[in-house]
């Protein structure tokens, strides 16, 4: 398990190494806080109007839902793939059945994802 902690150590090292960049930048950069316009959201030279965060839905939301399902499927295939050399040849049959079901589901989902009236 020590190895996994090294990934976290690397993560922590990058945080420790990069945070000073922001702090130094904050220290040596000129600051003029007197102008409230500067801190408005950037909107192409217009005075901003409306909220930045709204109920905003891309029409491709279906793909994100599909990701939730098929990501798990993909990782499950790894468990099979990593041990394929040790398994008997007949074990491919349930996997093919599993993939068949998944393909069907995926085809249906892709079909539904093109319908603009739902999303």
């Amino acid at each position: 398990m020590a190895n996994y902690s090294q990934v976290m150590l690397m993560f922590g090292f990058a945080v420790v190494a990069m945070a000073p960049a922001l702090i130094i930048s904050r220290m040596i950069s000129p600051r003029k806080r007197s102008n409230p316009v500067k801190f408005l959201p950037m909107e192409c030279g217009q005075v901003p109007s409306g909220a930045g965060r709204t109920h905003f839905m891309m029409q491709y939301y279906a793909f994100i839902l599909m990701f939730v399902v098929f990501d798990v499927m993909a990782i499950f295939l790894y468990a099979w793939g990593a041990t394929l050399l040790e398994l008997e040849k007949s074990t491919i049959l349930p996997i093919i059945a599993f993939l068949g079901i998944m393909f069907g589901a995926m085809a249906y989902a892709l079909n539904q994802s093109k319908r603009r009236d739902i999303w």
Partner: peptide, 13 residues
Amino acid sequence: DDKIMTLNVGPQH
């Protein structure tokens, strides 16, 4: 409705 977002494309764009 509130789903519609107004974008000002320009003049600085």
